[in-house]
Amino acid sequence: MKVIGLVAVNVFKESVRDKVLYSIVAFAVMLMSTTYLIGQLTAGQDIKIIKDLGLASISIFGLLIAIFIGIGLVWKEVEKRSIYTLLPKPMRRQEFLLGKYFGLVLTLVINIAVMTAAFYLVLALMRLLEPGIDAVSAAPATDAAMLKAIALVVVELMLVTAIALFFSTFSSPFLSALLTAGLWVAGHFNSDLRNFGAVVASPTLAQLTRAMYYVLPNFSAFDVKSQVVHAQAVPASYVALTCAYGLTYIALVLVGAAAIFARRDFK
């Protein structure tokens, strides 16, 4: 157990040294500059636009980190042969894999936490500069309900990371990235798949789309960004249920990854 933590901290150290956290700076600069630009262009709706933009970029930056680091986590160790010295140390292969996973999750969470703080800071600043701003939008500028959307984004990205790690235990980074991104896109259009099943004539096809709907990770369930921006209620029970779904799916993927990884030969 302790080994998982040690490996995880090492992954975090690697991401810091590889300057992954620079993405936060990019996020902050982008957010500030668009805030300034939008403030010049539109009236009234700017808080909504900034919220949309901020939430979207938090999830996109997170997604890029999850996919591009996730696919390299194991592959790089194998390719550079650093795994040869690591695995003979007193650890199980599963511990190594989970350590890698939690290390990247740690990186992601810290990244998103800092981006969220910067995001709220910008919103608070806008409110300070334009005191009447809350009157024209549906929700207050520094609405705590947005944290629900961000929390679900974190769980979603944890799932993306698990999937990337799963693929990287047996395929090349390019293929892993392709498969992970493909699943992410498919998972976001999942509700179309269900609707598709309702309008097709063939019962076999309808059953097939239905089966795929349940098998594919339902990423669209994690998206409540527009709801929180429009101040529509997102009950805590929904957030809890969706998190439970995400965490169960993560467990499923990680067990699969560990089972494959435990039997792999490192030639």
Binding site: Y214, N218, A221, V224, Q227, Q232, A233, V234, P235, S237, Y238, L241, T242, A244, Y245, T248, Y249, A251, L252, V255, G256, A258, A259
Partner: peptide, 27 residues
């Protein structure tokens, strides 16, 4: 591992069905 994956798979489908209902009530 296979037993765990089957169990988790069933849980995933069940949770998704529940989640769909919750989402339908959402907005």
């Amino acid at each position: 591992a296979i037993a765990a994956m089957v169990l988790l798979g069933v849980a995933v489908v069940g949770l998704q069905a529940l989640d769909d209902r919750a989402r339908a009530a959402l907005v």
